[in-house]
Computed example of a mutant assay.
Amino acid sequence: MGTIVAWIKEGSLLIKAPMGNSVLDLQILQGLNLKGIPRKAPKIIPVVWHLPIADWVKVSTDGLAKGNPGPTASGSVFRNCRGFVKGFYGLSLGIRSAFFAKLKSVILAVSFAWEKGWNKLWIESDSFAVISSLQNYTFKPPWPLLNEW
């Protein structure tokens, strides 16, 4: 048993990656008298949601994929200038990429707003790639979204 612990201690000197930070990991390391390599604290960025101006509708939209590609979903929430919910949706998109899901979410949000007659739309997305695509007049969407784009 002593030899195994010595090997573990010697091998731990070669490890450069951070530990998983679970309670079990910490207990195992303490039991073996080893020091763990803690992960760096995440950078916390404060985010403030702002109301849209009068006569505008703000849509917070997102898409996600479990895996890339993987099962995807899309959803949006529409709010008026007082913060009240005017509409929302959520739906499954099948097996796709995360970018596809996020872009499809914006396309669906614009379509939903158009059908409701909300022609002053403030789109909010957490995807830099999607926002950049919206601002780029030469952007070519994935072919399954070409007609909707």
Results as ranks from 00 to 15, higher is better:
144 P>Y: 05
104 K>I: 00
46 P>A: 02
7 W>Y: 14
40 K>Q: 14
8 I>C: 07
123 I>L: 15
119 N>C: 08
114 W>F: 13
79 R>V: 07
128 F>E: 04
123 I>R: 02
58 K>L: 07
139 F>S: 11
87 G>W: 05
107 I>K: 07
120 K>G: 04
2 G>M: 11
20 G>A: 02
61 T>Q: 04
1 M>N: 03
69 P>Y: 02
124 E>V: 04
8 I>D: 07
49 W>Q: 13
66 K>S: 12
11 G>D: 14
40 K>R: 15
27 Q>N: 15
50 H>Y: 10
129 A>D: 15
44 I>W: 04
55 D>A: 09
24 L>H: 14
93 L>G: 10
84 F>N: 13
11 G>N: 15
74 S>M: 15
138 T>N: 07
99 F>V: 03
31 G>F: 00
55 D>M: 08
115 E>A: 12
107 I>E: 07
95 I>A: 09
140 K>G: 00
149 W>L: 12
31 G>W: 05
71 P>S: 12
148 E>P: 00
115 E>N: 13
93 L>D: 05
82 R>A: 12
4 I>W: 12
72 T>I: 08
77 V>Y: 00
23 V>G: 09
55 D>Q: 13
5 V>N: 08
34 L>K: 06
41 A>V: 09
72 T>S: 12
47 V>R: 01
91 L>I: 14
54 A>V: 15
14 L>S: 14
116 K>I: 06
111 S>Y: 08
8 I>L: 13
130 V>F: 03
65 A>P: 07
129 A>M: 14
104 K>P: 09
39 R>W: 04
80 N>V: 09
129 A>P: 01
133 S>V: 07
140 K>C: 10
34 L>M: 07
140 K>N: 03
112 F>E: 09
29 L>K: 03
73 A>D: 05
136 N>Y: 08
70 G>H: 05
43 K>G: 04
3 T>N: 12
73 A>Q: 03
128 F>Q: 15
136 N>K: 13
10 E>L: 14
54 A>M: 11
134 L>Q: 02
90 G>T: 11
132 S>A: 13
94 G>R: 11
46 P>N: 01
76 S>R: 06
117 G>H: 00
147 N>S: 15
115 E>I: 06
145 L>A: 01
137 Y>C: 12
9 K>T: 02
137 Y>V: 14
146 L>Y: 05
103 L>N: 02
98 A>N: 13
43 K>A: 03
29 L>W: 01
8 I>T: 09
144 P>S: 02
22 S>Q: 03
15 I>H: 05
59 V>A: 10
140 K>L: 09
107 I>M: 10
44 I>L: 11
84 F>Y: 11
24 L>V: 12
13 L>S: 11
41 A>P: 06
145 L>Y: 00
124 E>L: 06
75 G>R: 03
61 T>H: 03
85 V>N: 04
125 S>K: 04
103 L>R: 05
16 K>A: 13
146 L>V: 06
137 Y>N: 15
111 S>K: 14
27 Q>G: 13
142 P>Q: 09
89 Y>A: 06
31 G>C: 07
19 M>Q: 01
24 L>K: 15
45 I>N: 11
19 M>T: 01
140 K>E: 01
71 P>N: 11
23 V>E: 06
112 F>I: 00
35 K>P: 00
128 F>L: 14
30 Q>W: 07
5 V>C: 01
96 R>I: 00
61 T>E: 00
102 K>M: 02
10 E>F: 08
106 V>I: 07
100 F>K: 03
27 Q>F: 12
59 V>H: 02
123 I>K: 04
